[in-house]
Amino acid sequence: MNLLARINARTLPLIVTSLLFVALFAFGSVSYDSFFSAQVFLNLFIDNAFVIVVAIGMTFVILTGGIDLSVGSIVALTTMVTAALVEQHHWSIWAVIPLVLLMGCAFGVMMGVLIQYFELQPFIVTLGGMFLARGLCYVISIDSISITDPSYAAVSEYRIMFGEEAFLSISAVIALVTLAIGIFLAQYTRFGRTVYAIGGNERSAILMGLPVARTKILVYTLSGFCSALGGVLVTFYMLSGYGLHALGLEMDAIASAVIGGTLLTGGVGYLAGTLVGVLILGVIQSLIAFDGSLSSWWTRIAIGVLLCLFCLMQRFFEHGGSKLSALFSYWNKPEEEGSAGSGAQPAR
């Protein structure tokens, strides 16, 4: 029973997701020549570096039971501000990047304060943030601004070689470092555990004396920061700033988190799962690209189907899981009575 209990609502989706990724990759390797290569795998990180970074922030937000719909437009705004400052005002890359990161944080703080102190729904506030950031893009320019600054091109083209053939981009490395820091934050710091506690039961978290207000604002700040960092990575990737960049990215980020096993009600989930979620979305895109005959809209449909399956699975575990555990404790009653262990009554 112990082992069975360990594979529960929180770990099973992660296992299923990982298996699914392996299966998809294996399917690709069997179906298409040259799919099975280190570079195709590493390309998943290169092409989705910004998604990974954004999804990390999103996962933190979802873990508190909130949601952040503004991430895509903050990414777009970041690219726009970067492009405008670098191209039109000839700022240095070293001045621009800290500035845009700060801007992302400021956006997050603003939304966090509105959510926390005015007790507004995260959904609606970040929706406002989404409008605001996209709108501000157009205030800067309606058209795309391409970035010709050589330092951006240099970062963009730099390859970190692994052996003879395979390589990663700087963006992918930044994404992986961010992920590592994120995992450390989530598992080994007070901030991270408070995030989980809020998602589990916010009222309890307050009564346990945890800094709930501060943590919630920080979580949206973190998401704002991640979005801005994602935006910086997009500028490296696309070498342009545009108000239509990262359209619908918030949905990809949410989908990655959910597919990775994060409960949208909060409190349960792993950042590693989110990474696998992003990779799954990426591998689906690669599959469709390799196929060549399938149109790009199949990606959206596939993501929708996956999202649906994983949500249903979560539902099953929310309900079935607790019923299952109640059953176990009921059946196990005779043995446990002596051990003074669990009161052995099924939880009501």
Binding site: R10, R193, Y196, A197, G199, G200, N201, R203, S204, A205, L207, M208, G267, V268
Partner: peptide, 8 residues
């Protein structure tokens, strides 16, 4: 009511 976090 038990004021703990059920998920932890």
């Amino acid at each position: 009511e038990v004021n703990l976090c059920p998920n932890l």
